[in-house]
């Protein structure tokens, strides 16, 4: 790990003022310190935001929506009874991620800003356009089971690793930002960037921007009775998704009212499947309908390497998640959250 200046910020304004070129904000550090230990990232200054008052609240807003402060721990949010009841797929996604120790430390803002787990990004002996723009991409032609099948480019085939972000994208969450240019908001769905020819630009944040909260709209609560997060990984627990899906349905009689679908593990951002949602809206649910929705969700998918199996896997996960969501949100988060092997 390189040496760095350490500054503890007492307020958002102080943090933004202390940020300079080469600086990074430090919340818990579960991802940042890991990257620094591997020399993947070498910030010259850490601006510690972990003591900033007021950033760790879960608030119900006047419109019925929920505002999650940047420093709310993943475990705190998932175990908040009112939150879990209103947004069960978000709680299940959170509890399917990382380990209990990491969830106790990891924050809301840190989760959405975590970097890809592409092993070529982590391995400083490999070429990576994210780490070093223009260096090339050793993932291409490499081991690609964790890599993208949607939205990738010849410059980068990495995926975004967050579980939390998948239902956040599906349920129209908004990211609140304060920065040198003042306060602004970006929908979570457009917060992360696809790689294109600039994979080193991972989000729409400008230098010095600080994520202060993530907001879920009141409309997302309408899906609470029929919401699931489903995640396929290489072991039952404590692994990143190969493919995951967050699904929410509403019903009007025997017809689907509205549908929300987002996929994880398939692209460099959580992948909202709007065409699939449109196909489901107002339709009578059936296995055939769900299969067509899955095809629509994976429209345009193509293997970025030896990972064509992920496309079919993702289709099946969409069908399975829709089927589970139709059956209804379980009364209690399963013993193995989001697992296809769970109850």
């Amino acid at each position: 790990m390189n040496r760095f200046d350490y500054i503890r910020a007492g307020s958002v304004a102080e943090a933004v003022a202390a940020h300079a070129a080469g600086a990074a904000y430090l919340a818990s550090g579960t991802n940042l310190l890991d990257l620094m230990k591997g020399d993947v990232t070498r910030p010259e200054r850490l601006v510690d935001i972990s003591r900033i008052f007021g950033l760790d609240a879960i608030e119900t807003l006047p419109d019925g929506g929920t505002r999650i402060g940047a420093l709310v721990r993943n475990a705190t949010l998932a175990h908040d009874p009112a939150f879990a009841k209103a947004y069960p797929a978000v709680a299940e996604a959170l509890l399917s991620g990382a380990s209990a120790q990491l969830r106790n430390a990891a924050t809301t803002a840190g989760n959405i800003l975590q970097r890809t787990r592409c092993q070529y990004f982590y391995d400083t002996a490999s070429a990576c356009n994210k780490r070093q723009p223009g260096a090339g991409c050793d993932a291409i032609g490499g081991v690609t089971r964790t890599h993208a099948v949607l939205g990738w480019s010849e410059h980068c085939i990495a995926t975004h690793p967050s579980d939390f972000c998948v239902p956040l994208a599906g349920f129209d969450a908004v990211v609140e930002i304060e920065g040198p240019a003042g306060r602004r908001e970006i929908p979570l769905e457009s917060f992360h960037r696809l790689p294109g020819d600039a994979p080193e630009r991972e989000t729409e944040l400008a230098p010095g921007d600080l994520v202060v909260a993530v907001r879920l709209p009141p409309e997302a609560k309408a899906f609470a009775a029929h919401s699931r997060y489903l995640k396929v990984r290489e072991r039952t627990s404590y692994a990143f998704a190969l493919v995951s899906a967050a699904v929410g349905l509403t019903f009007a009689g025997d017809r689907i009212g509205q549908a929300r679908i987002a996929l994880g593990g398939v692209a460099l951002k959580p992948w909202r499947a709007r065409a699939a949602e449109a196909l489901l809206a107002g339709a009578i649910p059936s296995p055939e309908l769900f299969a067509r929705a899955a095809d629509a969700a994976l429209q345009g998918a193509s293997p970025s390497g030896d990972n064509a199996a992920k496309i079919d896997l993702a289709r099946r996960i969409v069908v399975r998640a829709l089927t589970l969501a139709q059956a209804g949100t379980p009364a209690r988060i399963p013993a193995l959250p989001a697992s296809p092997f769970g109850a």
Binding site: R8, G29, L33, L46, A75, Q101, A105
Partner: peptide, 16 residues
């Protein structure tokens, strides 16, 4: 246990 909650001590800066 950090303030009563289990965490990985290797991924926390002491100064923080």
């Amino acid at each position: 246990l950090l303030d009563g909650v289990r965490i990985n001590a290797c991924l926390a800066l002491a100064v923080s």
